[in-house]
Nucleic acid binder design. Sequence first.
DNA 1: AACCGCTCCACAAACGTTTACATCCAGTTG
DNA 2: CAACTGGATGTAAACGTTTGTGGAGCGGTT
Lengths: 326, 326
Amino acid sequence: MVTTIRDVARACGVSIATVSRALAGSTIVAAGTRERVRQAAAELGYQPNRAARQLVTGRGQSIALVLPDLQNSFYSSVAKGMQRRVRAAGLSAMIADTDEDPDAEREVLDQLSAVVDRLILASPRVSDGDLTDLAQRCAVVLINRELPGLASVVGNNADGIRQSVTHLLALGHRRIGYAGGPSTSWSDSRRRAGLAALALPDGQEIVDLGAFRASQAGGVAAADLAIAAGVSAVVAFNDQLALGVLGRLAERGVAVPEAMSVVGFDDVPVARLLAPPLTTVAVPTIEIGERAAGLLIDAAPQDSPLPQIVLEVELQVRRSSAPPPG
Amino acid sequence: MVTTIRDVARACGVSIATVSRALAGSTIVAAGTRERVRQAAAELGYQPNRAARQLVTGRGQSIALVLPDLQNSFYSSVAKGMQRRVRAAGLSAMIADTDEDPDAEREVLDQLSAVVDRLILASPRVSDGDLTDLAQRCAVVLINRELPGLASVVGNNADGIRQSVTHLLALGHRRIGYAGGPSTSWSDSRRRAGLAALALPDGQEIVDLGAFRASQAGGVAAADLAIAAGVSAVVAFNDQLALGVLGRLAERGVAVPEAMSVVGFDDVPVARLLAPPLTTVAVPTIEIGERAAGLLIDAAPQDSPLPQIVLEVELQVRRSSAPPPG
DNA sequence: AACCGCTCCACAAACGTTTACATCCAGTTG
DNA sequence: CAACTGGATGTAAACGTTTGTGGAGCGGTT
C-alpha cells in the first residue's frame, strides 16, 4: 500500500489539513509543526497523489509539447530544453509528435487539450482561429510562430537571414538564391520579410528559388533550381533543406564551396560534421524549449502583457561558404 | 464551465452511473440507452476528467519513457515510435531525458514512478537491484537491456556485430579494431559477447581498442588508438562513436575507406549523409519504441512469461568500408 | 473578570469519476 | 395469485487531496 497524506498525519498526530498546508510551506502552520511534518513525510516516503491534487485544484501537473517531428534534431533539442525545465519545476513533460501532418496536429491538440492545461506548440500548422480557440481552454505558448494575444518564443529570423546574406555579400557574391520553406511556415515568412527589408547595393540581388518542403528531398529540387538560376550561393530555409542541397550538388559535380556556397539555418548538430561543414545560423534550440516552458511555469498575472520572446541567433561560418568563383 | 458526467446524465435523464457504464460500453446497460447517452455526450463535447478517473481506478493514463539523451537520434526515434503507439491507445506519453547522468536517472525514476504506473527505460544505467525494485511499483519495459523477470525490447546485438565483422573479413581485412562503448553498457557487453563467439580463421584477429564514451569525443580517442594498433578497419560501438572516428581520421589525414574502413551501429539518419556515407547496422528504432509501448498497453495477464523481444538488425553497406590497402 | 485578537489547528466539503450494492419492474413460474 | 427471477437503472461510497470556515487556547488590555 502506498502512503497517503493520512499516514503522515497519523504519524505526527495532526490532521491531514495541517499536513497538506505544512508540505505546501504555508506560513499559517507553526514552523515547528511544519518541520515535524516534513520529517515524517520524508521518512515515510510520502508522495502526494497527483490525480487527487489535480482533481481538487483543477490545475494540471503536466505541460505538453506538440512538435512536427522528433527525428528532426531542431525539435528534439527544443524538447530536451522543455522537459528539463518542466521537470525542474516538479511537473511532468508530455510530448506529442504530429509527423508533420496538419490533420494529426488537430487531433493531437483536441486530445491533449482535454488532458493538459498548459501547451507548447512548436511550429503549429493550424489556423490562427483554431489557435485562439485553443488558447481559451489552455495556456498556450507558441514556438516558431507569433500571434497577437498569445505568448511565444522565436528565434530572430530576420536577423539570421540578414547575417547570412551580409556574410555572402562580404565574400563577394552578387546573385544569391533563397531556397524557402513551406509557404505555410511562419518562420519562412519572417525570413522572407527579412530578405525584403535588406537594402541591397546595385548589382546585387536575391533570387527566390521557391518554396520547398523542409526535407532533404526538397533540397534536391532546390539545388537544381539554384544551378539553373545561375546563383553562386544558396541560402536555405533550414539545415534539413541545406543537407539536401549539399547532397544534390555533390551528385551533380558542383564543388562546395568553390563553385557554390551554401548556408543553412538552425545549426543542427550534424551541420559541423558534414563535408564540408555547413555554414549556418545557430539558433539556441534548447533555450527556446526552456524559455517556453518557463513562461508556463512562472505563470504571469492574468492581465499582464503576454511575453513574445525573441532570442538572438548567430551565424556560424564554416567551410560551405567561400568567395564566388572567378 | 467544462461539461461533466452530470451534465450528460441530466441531458438524457439518467443517472451518472448509467452514463459511466454506457460510455464504457458495458453491455449491462440497454442498447437504446447506451446509444442515447453516447449521442448526448458527443453533442455536449463531454470529455471524462482523467484525474477523477485515475483517482478511483488507480490506473494511470500515461506511460513514461526515460532516455539518456533526446539529441541522440537513436533515442529520439525510439521516442517517436513510443509516443505514436501510446497516443494511438488514447493514452499520453511522457518523456524524460537524463542527460546521460546516472544520478539524474535515479532522480527521474523516483519522481516518475510516483506519477506514472507504466515505464519504459531506454538504456538504463541503474543497477539490476534498483531496477527490480522499480518493477515492484510500476510495470516496466527495458530497452537495450535484458534482465531476468523483466520485459524488454532489444536489437540483436550479437548478430549485428557478426554481420559487421563478416562483411569486413569478406573484404579482406585481417586486423579489425573494436571501439567499445561504456563498460556499463549492456549493449556493449552483448556486442563483445558476439565478437567472442565468432570463430575467426587463422591469421585474422579482433583488437580490443578499449571502452569509450558513446560520443564524438570518445571517437577521437578511439581513432588514434586504431591508427596506433595498426588495424585496417574499425567497428564502432555506435554511430556517435563512428562519427568521432571519422572526423579524427580525416584530421589525421587517414583516408576512409582507402586506408581505413569504419563501421557503425544504429544507422542514425545522418549516417548516410556523411562523407563518406557510413556503413552501419540498421536498428529498427521506431519499431523498438512501438513494441515497448505495445507491451505495456496490451497488458499481458499477470503470470504469463514476460516477453523479451529481440528485433533483427541489418547491415547497411555504404562507402566507409572497402577492401584494406595493398 | 470579561473581553479581544491572535496564532495554530481540526472539521468537513468539494473535485468528477467508477463500481459494489440496492432497488424496481415486468414477466415467468409453481 | 404469490413468489421468484433477472435485466435495467439508481444510490452511495470511495479514491486522496486542497481549502474555507470555525473554534480552541492563550496572552494582554480594559
